[in-house]
Amino acid sequence: MKRSIALFVALVLVLLATFALAEQYTVGIGQFAEHGSLDNCRTGFIDGLAQEGIVEGQNLTVIYENAQADMGITQQIASQFAAKNVDLMVGIATPMAQACYNAADGKIPVIFNAVSDPVASGFVNADGINAGMITGVSDALPVAAQLATIRVMLPDAKRIGILYTTSETNSVSTIATYKSLCGEYGFEIEEMGISTSADIPLALDALLPKVDCLSNLTDNTVVQALALVLDKANTAKKPVFGSEIEQVKNGCIAAEGLDYVQLGKQCGIMAALVLKGEASAADIPYQIITEPSLYVNEAVLASFGITLNEELAVRAHAIQ
């Protein structure tokens, strides 16, 4: 009996000791702007870490800063992370990830989130090998799937209009993909570049009469003005296709989109490997989220009088 009590006490002590001695991690999360998809990346990331046993409040301290889309502040946030000597930096969206990678200076590992073109952003060399102590998950949009779905839903459509901000590299590279693929699905792409959200109303007035529908990218400026885009397009009776779930929730008709919570989660799992010292950020190959899901907004679908065919209906996630 005595022996078993002693054993039990010893066991408890060992458990307590491992708990107390368990490595404490500090992670700096920098987010470029405030909007649904990027917020999803962040929550997904923290979930991903938790799944690997690194839990906020227990053995993880998260320093979260948001640059509110101010370029002057991105660099300052990143240098503060470096000054606080965090164990790992996370940059959500391209400019923030670049600022982190610069401030980390090869001394602190960096995970990028929601970067559509990691090669053009300088994180990955042209041969697909990480440029330094940086890795992450890219959010290249499933353009082919989107075009196929639009073809099925709008059999007579010829021209797709895309509104994008000329300052966003993500949008520029996605439009290139759209243009190279649109022929296969019998579409033409009519693009319209803007430089600030103030240009959106005029740009839409010029664009809408020329197209049969709009397709949104993950362009930050356009997404932030989505209500206006939808308002103008609905008045013109042109459906707007989105690029992820949040946009469909807000009134886009449908989207072959990415799940940003899942993207964040994958990043969190990568980060856990790096924090535990199981792999270096320089060696973990970056990933691309490829598996699209179809989201449809039933109310909008009904208002345009469109019904999904069987193939789409089976895999569609309906959003009220």
Binding site: P95, A120, G122, G132, T166, S167
Partner: peptide, 18 residues
């Protein structure tokens, strides 16, 4: 200059990490 800057740089974002 906004357009001219885009033309000079060739694209909206140019990394110099290497």
């Amino acid at each position: 200059l906004y357009s001219i800057n885009l033309h000079i740089a060739g694209r909206a974002n140019v990394p110099l990490f290497n």
